[in-house]
Amino acid sequence: MAGLEVDYPAGGVDIRLSGSWLNASIASIDGNIKEIEGRTFAGPARIDLTALENLDTGGAWMIRRLAGKLERNAESLSLSGGHPGMLDLIAALPPELPEPESEAARRTLFERTFAPFGGQVMNLLDDMVQSFNIIGSAVRGAQLKLGRGSGLSPAAVFTHVEQMGVNAVPIIALMSFLIGAIIAQQGAFQLRYFGAEIFVVDLVGILQLREIGVLLTAIMIAGRTGSAITAEIGSMKMREEIDALQVMGLNPVGVLIFPRLLALVIALPLLAIVANFSALAGAAVVANIYSGVTLEVFLSRLQSAIDTSTVVSGMLKAPFMALIIGIVASVEGFKVGGSAESLGKHVTASVVKAIFVVILVDGIFAMFYASIDF
């Protein structure tokens, strides 16, 4: 328990401290301390620490605050008694804590308006630089040299292909089946007013093979696999496993990132093919039930509606989208700090950025195909 005795001899003040001045026990005497701090003394002020038993930073700060006030409000101030360590702790603290200056007050209106935008631009440039660094380091770190035993491990690539591709087949197939069925149903519903329900086959075939198939597959992979890559690399960084690889003389990017990038480039086009077949199957089922289009008619119309360029234009996007997802996920993984909050933040950022860039790249491909009439 913190103790405080005060005498007022000859216009001065004598303060004797006793007991344990700890953070948990000083609240009861804070009012008495503030009352002394608010008075002015014509004589000297003395603080006696002889009976003080225990002291922590909270108690030392209260004594230092009291001493600072008495230095200004009394003729003189003296501290006596106490353990030397207590005196050192009290002396190490400032008499008053500075008021925190508002950051908004220090910045001009122009800075407050454009600084967030500028910060985002600089972050984007940093991400681009790190992305190119990951691409170069991944290729170099793989050490693909003929006749060398220390190259890319096929087992690592096949393991990631299984995790990213094979295990994702059920959800990709189910999602694409439903998407194809929905497009067919809505298309047939609208085309029925014009007596052109048969053209729903053209709609589903061209839309799925050119755009929707690879795009939705890439979005699903960005959410499923991109987040996993970020979480894996971020966890390794938190546990300092990446630093351990560097100490061993290994390139972390080549060891960790390159197999994942290669597996994504292999898995995403194959998943896009699965998605296309599933969507067409869903469209065929709905067209048969909803519009009476038989499977033979559906396949015949589909064969006349699409050509090689329709299939190729969609599949060409898949490797680029796979690289984008892998690189964005890796960049965010290497940004993870030492806390679980940082890991969650960068996993979320990885998914959002990957989906945004994938949609942006799909739009760029669409404009490019239109410009060359492909």
Rank of each mutant, 00 (worst) to 15 (best):
G119L: 03
L49K: 07
V169L: 15
R107I: 06
F356C: 10
L174S: 02
G344F: 08
G338N: 06
I289E: 11
E75P: 03
T159H: 13
T294G: 15
E5N: 13
M321D: 11
E232V: 00
G136S: 11
P170C: 07
A305H: 03
T294H: 08
L191E: 00
G31V: 08
V347F: 01
P259W: 09
F194D: 04
G136M: 08
G333Y: 03
F158G: 04
A284F: 03
A284M: 15
H160L: 12
A228I: 04
L152K: 07
S176I: 04
M128W: 10
W21P: 02
L250Y: 15
G147A: 12
A340K: 04
A168H: 05
E111D: 11
L323P: 09
G3E: 13
N123W: 14
G249Q: 11
F320R: 10
V6Q: 11
V139S: 06
F132R: 03
A218V: 13
T108C: 05
L343I: 01
L302D: 12
M164F: 15
P98G: 08
A27Q: 13
I135G: 03
H160T: 07
V297M: 13
I198Y: 04
I233T: 01
F189P: 02
G11Y: 00
M86G: 05
A329D: 10
A287F: 01
I179Q: 07
I90R: 11
N288R: 14
N23G: 00
A60L: 11
A228F: 09
S78K: 10
F368K: 00
L245I: 13
W21V: 06
A104P: 01
V121W: 14
L209W: 03
G141K: 09
V253Q: 06
P269W: 01
M367R: 12
A231T: 04
I266H: 08
S227H: 05
D127T: 12
V361W: 05
D126F: 00
A168D: 05
N167Y: 05
A27Y: 04
L146D: 03
L270C: 14
L323A: 14
A51P: 00
E101L: 11
G234N: 01
D88H: 06
S227N: 07
G119S: 12
A45H: 10
G58V: 04
L280A: 05
V361T: 13
L245D: 08
L280Y: 02
L215C: 07
A305Q: 01
F110H: 13
L77D: 05
E101R: 12
A92Y: 03
G205Q: 04
S76Y: 09
R39E: 06
G12W: 11
V357A: 14
N73Y: 00
S227G: 14
G234P: 01
G136Q: 01
